[in-house]
């Protein structure tokens, strides 16, 4: 490209991408700054006076501090399910890669099924109910693990392939059992992909709306995404509060994005370059 064309296309790209991708976020921010009356106009304008603090207090206090409960629940859900997913997923990925046999190919098939197939909702509720896990955070954690395992296993399996087998053999000759080998040798070496799995799955689970909607109904169990959904009708006319809430739940992914952009992209593009 000639320098002049490069200049023009660059400016054009920045302009178009800003209008299309950035303005909606600025709109969220501006509306969250306004008072109720001004926000109800839903215009893209600079606020005449700033009310972000009032809005924050009101949103947090709404419905008996529901948002705080939701943040606590979402945090527990995310941390617990990601932790289980990492350990169990890495164990499967390790053996899947190291020990090809008829059983591992069957397991591989189920991994793909889990990746592609949507879950059967009502029968899952039925199972949860008979186990006494329906409407409990424990049940929800296990559900997220079950749904997220497939993707984690695939990432782990691909990464285990890069760890030389000689390492396993050396550890085994030195007397390490399979548990020691896995937890003390392999898992520490998996650190980069562990970080990727943690980041990608945390964002997915934190943002999950559909599964808590089905499996975790009830006021005590509310998660962050559901508060937003509940407030949508409650704040029907209070756009300032609605958008303050949107702003609040956009902050965690923004922080993740700023610190872990590289790992997220690595995890999400894992399937793109084969052979």
């Amino acid at each position: 490209m000639s320098p002049q064309r490069q200049y023009i296309s660059g400016v054009l790209a920045i302009l178009v991408s800003t209008v299309v991708f950035v303005i909606p976020f600025i709109f969220i921010l501006l509306t969250a700054l306004k008072d109720k009356k001004e926000a109800s106009l839903r215009t893209f304008s600079w606020p005449t006076s700033f009310h972000i603090w009032d809005n924050l207090v009101q949103v947090i206090k709404a419905r008996d501090y529901m948002l705080l409960t939701a943040f606590v629940n979402s945090t527990i859900l995310t941390v617990a399910s990601v932790a289980l997913m990492v350990v169990f997923g890495a164990m499967v990925g390790f053996v899947l890669q190291r020990r090809p046999s008829i059983w591992t190919s069957i397991a591989g098939f189920f991994v793909l099924v889990g990746l592609i197939m949507p879950p059967a909702v009502v029968p899952t509720i039925w199972v949860l109910q008979s186990l006494g896990l329906f409407k409990t955070l424990h049940g929800m954690i296990l559900i997220e693990v079950a749904y997220g395992l497939s993707f984690s296993i695939l990432l782990f399996r691909a990464f285990v392939a890069t760890i030389p087998r000689e390492l396993d053999e050396a550890a085994t000759i030195d007397g390490a059992g399979s548990l020691q080998l896995f937890f003390r040798i392999i898992l520490p070496l998996l650190k980069p992909v562990v970080v990727t799995v943690i980041v990608v799955q945390s964002v997915a689970i934190f943002n999950d709306f559909t599964n808590p909607l089905y499996y975790l109904p009830g006021k005590q169990n509310v998660t962050v995404q559901l508060t937003l959904y509940n407030f949508q009708s409650m704040f029907d006319t209070s756009y300032n509060l609605l958008f303050t809430n949107v702003l609040l739940i956009t902050i965690p992914p923004l922080i993740v994005f700023l610190f872990f952009n590289r790992q997220i992209v690595a995890g999400m593009t894992a399937g793109a370059v084969k052979g």
Partner: peptide, 19 residues
């Protein structure tokens, strides 16, 4: 074998029962 099949077990139980 240093690669025991029971390593599948925790994942298989959760996946099997809930999915």
């Amino acid at each position: 074998t240093p690669y025991p099949t029971w390593f599948f077990l925790p994942a298989a139980v959760i996946y099997g029962v809930l999915f």
